[in-house]
Design a binder for these strands. Structure first.
Length: 107
DNA sequence: CCACTGACGCGAC
DNA sequence: CGTCGCGCCAGTG
């Protein structure tokens, strides 16, 4: 299982109405310093079943979105799950998963 | 094999 | 508060 698949698997574990940061995902897949690459991986995702819109920046900003519509569409989907967003900012302490361990993928 | 390259993070200022 | 600059690292060509 390569990093890409692990990353997608971890993303699929994020519950609706909650978010995780790119760094959280990196931690979950066992590469805590590879957050930069996690972004690249999600950028390659073309599988609509993977809820990659729930992955945001650790500064509380929404970040990018590779599907048509870009960031605007990402915000739309998040709002559709009940997440409040002002501008492109999210209240991290309110919606972020309690622990990235919850997303951990074994081997 | 080598050199980019990102849906990023964080400290400085 | 905001912006800038440098570091990050696995995949891709």
């Amino acid at each position: 299982m390569n990093l890409s698949k692990k990353t997608y698997a971890a993303a699929r574990r994020i519950p609706p109405g909650q978010v995780a940061t790119y760094a959280d995902l990196a931690y979950a897949i066992g590469h805590p310093r590879a957050w930069r690459h996690v972004g690249s991986i999600l950028g390659q995702n073309r599988d609509v079943k993977t809820p990659c819109h729930r992955v945001i920046r650790s500064d509380g900003r929404v970040g990018g979105f590779g599907f048509p519509g870009g960031t605007a569409q990402k915000i739309k989907k998040l709002r559709g799950e009940g997440i409040r967003i002002s501008g492109d900012r999210i209240e991290l302490q309110r919606y972020r998963i309690s622990s990235p361990r919850l997303l951990a993928v074994r081997s």
